[in-house]
Simulated assay, not measured.
Amino acid sequence: MSDLAPLLSNKVIIALLLIASYTYYIILTLYFRPVNHSWLSDVHNWQMGLLALIASQPLLGLLGTIQGLLDTFEFISIFDALSQQAVMSGGISGALITTKLGLVLAIPSLILRQLLLFKYKKQQGIL
């Protein structure tokens, strides 16, 4: 658990986890609901919102990486006496975690949305 504490103190990681959880919740709730006219309407209405939620995940990850790099460079400029290589490698490694997390969370979101869209199109008779 001690390895997770620094990650869970990062506001970008918290935002990523919340957005991804909400996205998964919406998609899975829609997918497993009984199919009727209301379902068709809800799936249709959620398409643009889902795309926005999914697109925000890797963008938030990139924002976290940029913030982490800026924090690392600021730390180096303040504490010039420390070994800059050790600080740089640790800071960059920590910063890149948010980009990785954003991508790891967005990929299943895209796959689940496509499955929902496939089911929707099948019910509409498009496929």
Score class of each variant (00 low, 15 high):
1 M>C: 12
3 D>V: 13
4 L>V: 08
4 L>N: 14
8 L>I: 13
9 S>F: 05
9 S>Q: 15
9 S>C: 06
10 N>S: 09
11 K>F: 08
11 K>Q: 13
11 K>D: 11
12 V>H: 01
13 I>H: 06
14 I>W: 08
16 L>S: 06
16 L>K: 05
17 L>H: 07
18 L>V: 15
21 S>R: 03
21 S>Y: 11
22 Y>S: 12
23 T>C: 14
27 I>M: 06
28 L>N: 13
28 L>R: 07
30 L>C: 09
31 Y>K: 15
31 Y>A: 10
32 F>M: 11
33 R>C: 15
35 V>M: 06
35 V>E: 07
36 N>C: 04
37 H>T: 09
37 H>I: 08
37 H>A: 14
38 S>T: 12
40 L>D: 03
43 V>K: 03
43 V>C: 04
45 N>D: 13
46 W>T: 11
46 W>I: 02
46 W>R: 12
47 Q>M: 07
50 L>V: 07
51 L>T: 14
52 A>R: 15
54 I>A: 09
54 I>N: 10
55 A>W: 07
57 Q>K: 04
57 Q>I: 15
59 L>S: 05
59 L>E: 00
60 L>N: 07
62 L>V: 09
62 L>I: 14
64 G>N: 05
66 I>F: 04
66 I>N: 00
66 I>M: 08
70 L>W: 01
71 D>G: 03
73 F>L: 05
76 I>T: 02
77 S>P: 02
78 I>F: 05
79 F>N: 14
80 D>L: 06
84 Q>D: 10
85 Q>R: 10
86 A>C: 00
86 A>M: 09
89 S>H: 09
89 S>D: 06
90 G>E: 04
91 G>H: 10
94 G>M: 06
95 A>W: 07
96 L>P: 02
99 T>H: 02
100 K>Y: 12
103 L>N: 13
104 V>F: 14
106 A>R: 06
108 P>T: 05
109 S>A: 14
112 L>H: 00
113 R>P: 03
113 R>K: 15
115 L>N: 12
116 L>P: 00
116 L>V: 00
117 L>D: 13
117 L>T: 12
118 F>Q: 08
119 K>E: 05
120 Y>D: 01
121 K>F: 02
124 Q>A: 01
125 G>A: 04
